[in-house]
Amino acid sequence: MKSAIELRDVHKSFGTTKIIFGVSLQIREGERHAIIGPNGAGKSTLFNLISGRYEVSAGRILLHGADITNLQPFEINRKGLSRSFQVTNIFHNMSVYENVRCGVLWPAGYRYSFWHRVGGLRDVRQRAEEVMERIGLARRRNTLAGTLTYAEQRALEIGVTIAGGASVVLLDEPTAGMSRTETAQVVELIRSVTEGRTLVMVEHHMGVVFNLADRISVLVYGELLATGTPEEIRANPAVQEAYLGALHKEAARADGSHA
């Protein structure tokens, strides 16, 4: 099967501090892949490397087989990879509708156009309406993004990320800071909006991970400990020992399921 994303021996250091030590990983097309690991393991850094926010110190990153190592974020985005942020990163002074539209414009082919009236672009409007409907913010379309509730902002963050129809979607802790019902809603949202796409997510919430992911990678101190199906990861003694055991008990306590 073809890889949507492939990391080949990727390293990252800031000054003398090494964060990522030679991570190699293949994420298949169409799968939902979760990256888990304790705090400070380098999960977000890995996302920042893949999406072009940071420069890679060594190694290569491929998207659909094409080399995207150290390209600019916008170049990577144009090749079909879109990401969300752990700390909500939207256009606070724009309405919900305009936020979503920002995500639609480039892929719809309007790019830097200054000869189209944006209000008259029916395809853009339709796509934005669809996305707003999906993320459940259609009725809040004219609300300024900065005045939305936290959960709504998180939903909008996902909406802006998937609006362009990217084939690979990276979600950085989409359920961070959410209540249980909100989390359940977001899981359903993620499931529906990533239908037919490749999803890579960083997530702390084990319930969400084991519920959503087809495969899981465990990152500990900048190194990949294991990759496999949820069952394999759960059964992997190294993972249990290093990390999952403690966390799993915690998750079980919090969830009451997935024992």
């Binding site: 916008f74 414009l105 480039w106 200054f114």
Partner: peptide, 26 residues
Amino acid sequence: LTQTPLGRMANAVRDNPERAEFVGYN
């Protein structure tokens, strides 16, 4: 011009340049 894709994205770049890069805009 303020009502064109470029005009709207100029506002987006003014408000949050980083996010604008991640929706495909240089």
